[in-house]
Computed example of a mutant assay.
Amino acid sequence: MAKKDKRSNNVERLQTMVANTEENIAEAKLTLDDDGLADAEKQAIRQKNDRREESIEAFKNEIADEKGDRENGRY
């Protein structure tokens, strides 16, 4: 039997995910300063950070949706 969708903490969970992802971006940027990294590794890190930025935007959109649902009593 499937578990009931617990949405009461979604906003907080998503905000934590945004903070964690922003921290990962910052750590990756520090790693880019390492002169020992090959150009291919640096490029891979930059691409991953680009994907992380996209994820943050998606998280923020979902936070807005969840807040709207919460305010309108949809759950």
Rank of each mutant, 00 (worst) to 15 (best):
M1A: 15
M1D: 09
A2L: 11
A2Y: 12
K3D: 07
K4H: 09
K4E: 02
D5K: 05
K6L: 10
R7T: 05
R7D: 04
S8C: 06
N9L: 11
N10P: 02
N10C: 07
N10E: 07
V11A: 02
E12W: 03
E12Q: 09
R13Q: 03
R13E: 02
L14E: 02
Q15C: 00
Q15E: 06
Q15A: 00
M17P: 00
M17L: 09
M17H: 03
V18N: 04
A19K: 06
A19R: 04
T21F: 01
T21H: 00
E22S: 02
E22Y: 04
E22R: 04
E23W: 00
E23Y: 01
N24T: 04
I25Q: 03
A26Y: 03
E27L: 02
A28K: 07
A28Q: 08
K29P: 10
K29L: 07
L30E: 05
T31Y: 12
L32P: 02
D35V: 13
G36Q: 15
D39I: 14
D39S: 15
D39C: 11
K42Y: 03
Q43I: 14
Q43C: 10
Q43N: 14
I45Y: 00
R46H: 09
R46P: 06
R46W: 04
K48I: 08
K48H: 09
N49E: 12
N49C: 14
N49L: 13
N49R: 11
D50P: 00
D50S: 11
R52D: 06
S55N: 09
S55Q: 07
I56Q: 01
I56L: 05
E57T: 14
E57H: 11
E57Y: 10
E57D: 13
A58D: 13
A58N: 11
F59H: 04
F59R: 04
K60D: 12
N61Q: 15
N61W: 12
A64C: 10
A64T: 11
D65H: 15
E66C: 10
K67E: 15
G68C: 11
G68L: 12
D69S: 12
E71C: 01
E71P: 05
N72D: 12
N72W: 06
N72E: 11
N72I: 01
G73F: 02
R74P: 06
R74Y: 08
R74V: 06
Y75S: 10
